[in-house]
């Protein structure tokens, strides 16, 4: 990757936040606010022009290979089966093959992919592919999970299902999660903490703590407290000029992305 010869644009300014151990944190903002850039900085896939990313007190200078990462696209290798794709990560982390295969099968089964272990990615639907990608990110039981708009390309129902599944996987394992999204309800539903970012240069507008009890079912989205969080975040975007109101006030229901 090279940025030579391009105009340098200030992408981020004063972005500062912490992710505690076992905490689910979402980076929420409109496209172009630099939330994915923040994630790749945290992953060590990109170096900051100034400032630093600290991980367990250490400055991040190289790709954080101990982390699990899920991209917006599944990025499965089309020549490997679902199981083979999960095992690629196991091999890369030097896991014992027999142990890894057993764990990979269990992991695939836990996200509803039992019976599809030997299917090639192109034989799977988009949602199934992304589930396999999540299994690949979790196979080595990482303490940090980085997710870059993993559900953005999926239909609304598949998205809901995957949100519920991710909530369960998170509760079972309790890694620290940094989750990038542009959907307000998705961020509120999944997170302990939502970092609201606004545009150009991307900057942290506010950090909203979501203290809804876990496990959360989809019905939590109908509760007044959930609606309150959504509204609070929505107002931030309105105040930043990213959303314009028409007529009366903003209702929580309008936030569905």
């Amino acid at each position: 990757m090279s940025f030579r010869g391009r105009r340098i644009i200030e992408a981020l300014r004063d972005v500062s936040f912490d992710v505690a151990a076992g905490e689910f944190v979402s980076l929420l903002g409109p496209s172009g606010c630099g939330k994915s850039t923040v994630l790749s900085l945290v992953a060590g896939l990109r170096a900051p022009t100034s400032g630093k990313v600290l991980c367990d007190g250490q400055s991040v200078r190289a790709p954080v290979t101990s982390a699990g990462m899920v991209f917006q696209k599944p990025v499965l290798l089309e020549w490997r089966s679902a199981l083979g794709n999960v095992l690629l990560s196991a091999d890369a982390h030097g896991m014992d093959r027999a142990v890894a295969e057993q764990r990979a099968r269990a992991l695939l089964a836990s996200v509803g992919l039992a019976g599809f272990e030997h299917a090639y990615p192109r034989e799977l639907s988009g949602g199934m592919q992304q589930r396999a990608a999540i299994c690949r990110a979790l196979i080595h039981e990482p303490t940090r999970l980085l997710m870059d708009e993993p559900f953005a390309a999926l239909d609304a129902i598949t998205r809901d299902q995957l949100s519920v599944d991710l909530g369960r996987l998170f509760l079972e394992r309790r890694p620290s999660v940094l989750f990038v999204t542009h959907s307000i309800p998705e961020a509120v539903f999944l997170s302990d903490k939502v970092i609201v970012m606004t545009n150009r240069p991307g900057t942290v507008d506010r950090i909203v703590n979501i203290d809804l009890p876990r496990p959360r079912s989809l019905h939590v989205r109908q509760t007044p407290r959930f609606g309150g969080f959504v509204e609070e975040i929505l107002e931030l975007f309105v105040a930043a000029g990213l959303l314009r109101e028409e007529g009366g006030g903003v209702r929580a229901g309008d936030a569905a992305a």
Binding site: M1, S40, A43, L45, M69, F71
Partner: peptide
């Protein structure tokens, strides 16, 4: 770029 990033986050060397 996605595949390259996958390779980098998995810590794969050039040859691998």
């Amino acid at each position: 770029a996605d595949m390259r990033n996958l390779g980098r986050i998995l810590g794969l060397g050039r040859m691998t």
